[in-house]
């Protein structure tokens, strides 16, 4: 009887050791962390690519503010520099642009340096204020993201052209 009890105790100890170890592994697993970062980059990055392709010409300042909020580093600097010219273009264009990301995926992610890249297929509906029929434009983008204290932000956004070979 005492012998059985000791065996049971030993088994419980082994089970605890093993499950404790696997729990520790799961907690500090870089794979789980990478997965979480990847999903965040995809979600945040897609929304930011859409934001940078959307504009309501009647409220250019709001739109330009959203562009600023979605970007960091070189892209933000460029947007800031070109904001006055962009605003003029937006107001003169009298066009509402509404962008949707049809599909996107993260192509690379470096958690240590806090950088990532994603590709996105974007559909932009352009509605002229004059009342003409809306037109649909499709664009393919490659975006670079950087982790900032406020979260992931776009630091580059490039249209992937059809290569003229």
């Amino acid at each position: 009887m005492r012998w059985t009890a000791r065996v049971l105790l030993a088994l419980a100890l082994v089970f605890l050791g093993w499950s404790g170890w696997s729990l520790y592994q799961a907690y500090r697993s870089p794979l789980g962390d990478l997965g979480k970062d990847r999903d965040t980059v995809l979600k945040v990055g897609s929304a930011q690519v859409a934001a940078l392709n959307s504009m309501d010409w009647t409220r250019p300042d709001d739109g330009l503010k959203r562009w600023q909020d979605a970007s960091t580093g070189p892209l933000r600097d460029q947007l800031q520099r070109e904001a006055p010219a962009d605003k003029q273009k937006i107001v003169q264009g009298r066009m509402a642009a509404d962008a949707t990301v049809d599909a996107a995926a993260v192509t690379s992610l470096d958690a240590r340096s806090g950088t990532a890249r994603l590709v996105a297929a974007v559909r932009i509906t352009l509605t002229p204020s004059a009342g003409g029929a809306p037109t649909v434009q499709r664009k393919r983008y490659e975006a670079g993201l950087a982790r900032t204290p406020a979260g992931w932000r776009l630091q580059s956004l490039t249209v992937i052209p059809v290569s003229a070979r």
Binding site: A26, Y27, G32, G35, S108
Partner: peptide, 17 residues
């Protein structure tokens, strides 16, 4: 607890990981 951590959608998807 281990099972829960390893079965989140982020952990199940092995893309890039």
């Amino acid at each position: 607890e281990t099972g829960k951590l390893n079965s989140t959608p982020a952990a199940r998807n092995a893309a890039l990981a």
